[in-house]
Design a binder for these strands. Structure first.
Length: 533
DNA sequence: ACAGACTGCGCC
DNA sequence: AAAGGGCGCAGTCTGT
């Protein structure tokens, strides 16, 4: 399929060998919806194609996204970061020089603005068909990568649908939250009242005007008061005994709220009761999503009360509990670690681990166990981390081996791969310098776990979306953030939808790891507001 | 005047 | 309490 925004949809049927099995046809939205009743696997160029379809009112059951898959295949072939756009992929097939990828188009940009972009219309369709066939040949020999390609494509579908549906956002509640914290909305670009008061308190404490938004000025002001500080980070300031500290900390927190998620944000990003961020599938090298604009993956807790279900509806908020250590246990086949994570839906892995490592009654056992696990996954070396990690290694050697092998690979300048085959970037020139090599070791150590967790979440999303779709959409996916999903739908279907999340999670675990004792709890709570516990 | 680096902090 | 992995964004600072 090929869809120019607003233009005709060009479609062509493929046979079992992925070759054209008929002529190119132009189809309208109604015809496309009818064709989807047979649940074909649609093949298209990029999530943009689906954006155009959704705009025309067409939703599909499943798809293969050529550009998303091409990026996976290019990296897997050892050419991380090489162009993966349709034009480049098409040129590679033809043995021609690759064209660089065009820059991402703005939403309202007419197609074809960039001369280097792929040709429009039937030629684009032919390129999609040819590149898809080549991709399928490559994937035929690699079932794990094929699963990843399917999940990545499904991610593109979910991302565009979530953007089209939007996250329910109550601007009045948001405005009330801001007014309570900052004072009334100021005219123009003036400081809100509360910030102005705190700035005055800061000036008074230093005995002269100091711009609290300027770290350099704040450092100089403390210097004159006899405090030489390494930075103005809040945890540094908290240790300083000076009257400016309290108003400065309060100012920083509120200024952050004002600039990042204040009235300007609200006006820019929330329309008609919906927040519609643009999700960038695979935007992070680990396979996590990024967003473009709106900071959707950093919605602070302070404004989550503004995320409210429509009247008569509910939100289902579900996040995977201690996802990364459980993923590590599954990857490593470390049944001891899996058992420590427990099998109950609400089991606490760190508590179970504390029992295993320190016995039941050790003080701070849970905190120490958590530190040990984070050391293993992030490569932390400071404080007691090394001691706790050694303990972890003795009890769970299989799990620790997985991350330490990844760390060694990174330090040696080699690449690593996730469980399904997402490939890390290669070492850069200069990475053999010891400090850089250690940093790269920490990166690859984390990559194997974070990237596998990301693909598990992607498979969960795909399964959940398919199950919801098949059940007639008792709820819609409206938000996804690394290990957390939000659903929105009628109140009477919310409990069912919450149960479907755990089912999708269990299916994802089996799809990736087969028969494993690892269980990943994804408890869903049915709420009216995202801020509710 | 504008671009890019840097700082600091929100989220996972 | 602090510091390990991954981001995006707003504001200041610096260089041209």
């Amino acid at each position: 399929m090929h869809a120019d925004p607003g233009g005709p949809f060009l479609i062509q049927r493929l046979d079992d060998a992925d070759a054209p099995a008929g002529p190119v046809n132009a189809a309208g939205p109604a015809q496309l919806s009818l064709l989807d009743d047979d649940a074909p696997r649609w093949v298209w160029r990029s999530p943009r194609t689906y954006r155009a379809l959704l705009a025309a009112g067409v939703r599909v059951t499943r798809a293969h996204d050529v550009e998303l898959v091409e990026r996976l295949l290019v990296a897997a072939a050892g050419r991380f970061g090489a162009p993966h756009g349709l034009a480049a992929a098409s040129a590679r097939l033809a043995g021609l020089p690759e064209e660089p990828d065009p820059p991402p188009e703005a939403d309202d940009e007419p197609p074809g603005l960039f001369p280097s972009a792929a040709p429009a219309g039937p030629e684009t369709l032919a390129a999609v068909v040819a590149v898809h066939a080549a991709q399928r040949r490559t994937l035929a020999g690699n079932p794990r990568l094929a699963l990843l390609a399917t999940a990545e494509s499904a991610g593109g579908v979910v991302a565009e649908e979530m953007r089209a549906d939007g996250l329910p956002w109550d601007a009045d509640v948001h405005d009330d939250l801001l007014t309570t914290a900052l004072g009334p909305r100021p005219a123009g670009y003036a400081r809100p009242r509360r910030l102005a008061e705190l700035a005055a308190d800061i000036d008074a404490a230093f005995g002269r005007p100091v711009n609290p938004d300027s770290p350099a000025e704040v450092l100089r002001a403390f210097g004159r008061s006899g405090f030489e500080l390494p930075s103005t980070r809040s945890w540094v300031l908290k240790k300083v005994d000076h009257p400016a500290v309290a108003p400065l900390l309060a100012y920083k927190e509120l200024a952050r709220l004002h600039t990042a998620h204040g009235w300007a944000w609200l006006r820019t990003w929330v329309h008609d009761g919906r927040f519609r961020p643009e999700y960038v599938v695979g935007g992070v090298v680990s396979g996590r999503w990024a967003t473009r604009g709106g900071g959707a993956l950093q919605i602070p807790r302070a404004v989550r009360g503004a995320v409210r279900a429509d009247p008569g509806n509910r939100l289902v908020v579900a996040d995977a509990a201690q996802l990364e250590p459980r993923i590590l246990a599954a990857m490593a086949g470390d049944d001891a670690l899996a058992r420590a994570g427990g099998r109950e839906p609400d089991s606490d892995l760190y508590a179970g681990l504390a029992h295993e490592l320190f016995g039941g009654s050790a003080p701070d056992g849970r905190a120490k166990a958590k530190l040990a696990v984070l050391s293993a996954i992030y490569g932390q070396t400071s404080g007691d981390a090394g001691v706790h990690l050694a303990l972890l290694r003795r009890r769970f050697p299989a799990a620790v081996d997985v991350v330490e092998a990844a760390a060694r690979a990174g330090e040696d300048g080699r690449i690593v791969r996730s469980w399904l085959g997402r490939t890390s970037p290669p070492a850069a020139p200069g990475d053999e310098v010891p400090a850089r090599a250690r940093a790269r070791g920490r990166f690859t150590r984390n990559f194997v776990v974070q990237a596998t967790a990301a693909e598990w979440a992607l498979v969960l999303l795909a399964e959940l979306r398919a199950a919801l779709h098949a059940a007639g959409d008792p709820a819609r996916l409206v938000f996804f953030q690394h290990d957390e999903v939000l659903l929105h739908g009628p109140a009477d279907g919310a409990e069912l939808a919450a149960a479907m999340v755990q089912d999708a999670a269990d299916t994802a675990t089996r799809r990736l790891f087969g028969d494993t004792p690892v269980r990943i709890p994804v408890p869903g709570r049915v709420v009216t507001s995202y801020a509710e516990k």
